[in-house]
Design a protein around this nucleic acid. Structure first.
Lengths: 247, 247
DNA sequence: GACGCCCTTTGACAGAGGTCAATGCATGGG
DNA sequence: CCCATGCATTGACCTCTGTCAAAGGGCGTC
């Protein structure tokens, strides 16, 4: 592989983002769930040549709120957060994305929120201009993107009900149910949360102390079990569902 | 005018929704802002034949949360709210739509939130199945829909920051600025809010009493003026902007 | 295997906003 | 033009959640 070529590509990327090598769409983990799923083999190849794979370490930020919007990407592996914040530093996480999800803002000049890796992650990254051009010529891609964006909007609006109208107890219960649905539990029924208490607080619009207190009370009531910092076992799902809707 | 034809159309519609007659896309108020703007004259005619115009009275609900998703529509005139609620009746308004906006959930079987007219309104209404089919064959339409949905998502996510992290004072100030941007003031600089205090509360995720108290304090501070129930004059925009970001 | 860091938990207290209740006052109908 | 109705305002009080501070305990490192 050509060293100079690699370094030239790196120059346009945020610090520490490292391109991967030896990519092949046919073997891609998310090939039939990502937005490229409906493309023909040749179209997918063409799209693939526009972009490239990059690896991220947990904690790295790929895009910053308000920045010029240079790239979009498919998430191949890992979990990332989308966040906005007020001038004085209060943060609200506005979305969490998983493998096969799409990130970035196509057809727009500004990035409306930051994107930060919560776990180590791999992306399939495209320069926005090139991606936009490709998308305009491929209706299947735009259709997939539209479906995905409509789903995102539905989920985001459902989350507004949580932020605006639910109590801390209901918020935490709803969050745990949501994670239970998204993440696979291990053989002991334990889920490994990809988020710290602070990040959970930033998702739910409450403080870290309130998250902690609610979790402890749920544990005391026998509804959940806490295993270390990141582990949770959802013991009584029915109870959790009841608490998620009415305190 | 054919009476029987009209009544047959009415049968498929929510109670009290009355079809209009004499429609012509060429004279449509929103023709160059709605999603149909990029269609050729003949395509627009074809789309027009799929749908029809209906009038709504303030307070009428067009779609209910969780219902089978039968229709989508362009808003021709008026203001409507999108809302979800918890089992025990707490409501959160998740969006407010204006003339030229699009409502309903294309490509999905369920309506994720209710849609209710805040003012008298006129819609250009399409059966969802027929609209979906038409959209699949018209990339320009899907592109417009995608752009609009991406914008909606950006705005919705910005609103999450308000719901999760802003104080009552900041929420009310942000709301007033937003209305000031959207609605044209009359010659006295007075805006006529299309929302009751309760609805404002449901948008901001606070109670009606808190909205009222904040408004009164803003008035006492000389930042705004209150004229009757629905009138507001934004006196000190700079102050309002400062309050919107940091209490 | 022990140590130290930092995340998390717990406690005490305060305050923003919710709740309940009464009064005020636009607005539309008679 | 006046009255009645329902929305909006105001007040008193209380609770939930935030704030500040300290102690506890995983987890990575040496």
């Amino acid at each position: 592989m050509n060293m100079q070529f690699d370094m030239a590509q790196n120059a346009a990327l945020p610090t520490m983002v490292r391109p991967c090598v030896g990519h092949n769409c046919e073997r891609c983990d998310v090939r039939d769930r990502a937005i490229c799923a409906d493309l023909s083999a040749s179209d997918r190849d063409a799209l693939s040549r526009i972009g490239r794979r990059v690896s991220l370490k947990a904690g790295q930020t790929v895009m910053w709120e308000g920045d010029d919007n240079m790239v979009v990407a498919n998430v191949v592996e890992g979990t990332l957060k989308l966040a906005t914040s007020t001038g004085d530093g209060r943060e609200q996480i506005v979305g969490v994305v998983y493998a096969s999800d799409f990130i970035g803002r196509p057809f727009g000049a500004r990035t409306p929120h930051s994107v930060t890796a919560l776990t180590d992650a791999r992306l399939c990254l495209f320069p926005r201009g090139a991606f936009d051009g490709f998308a305009r010529d491929h209706a299947e891609l735009q259709h997939r993107l539209l479906q995905r964006t409509l789903d995102d909007l539905d989920r985001t609006r459902a989350w507004m009900l949580l932020l605006g109208r639910k109590t801390a107890r209901e918020k935490v219960a709803t969050f745990l149910l949501d994670m239970g649905r998204r993440l696979r539990a291990d053989r002991d029924g334990v889920i490994d949360l990809p988020l710290s208490r602070q990040q959970i607080a930033d998702i739910l619009g409450i403080t870290i102390e309130t998250v902690s207190r609610q979790m402890t009370e749920l544990k005391r009531g026998g509804t959940i079990d806490l295993i270390g910092r990141r582990g949770v076992r959802l013991v009584d799902m029915a109870e959790l569902e009841a608490l998620a809707e009415a305190g």
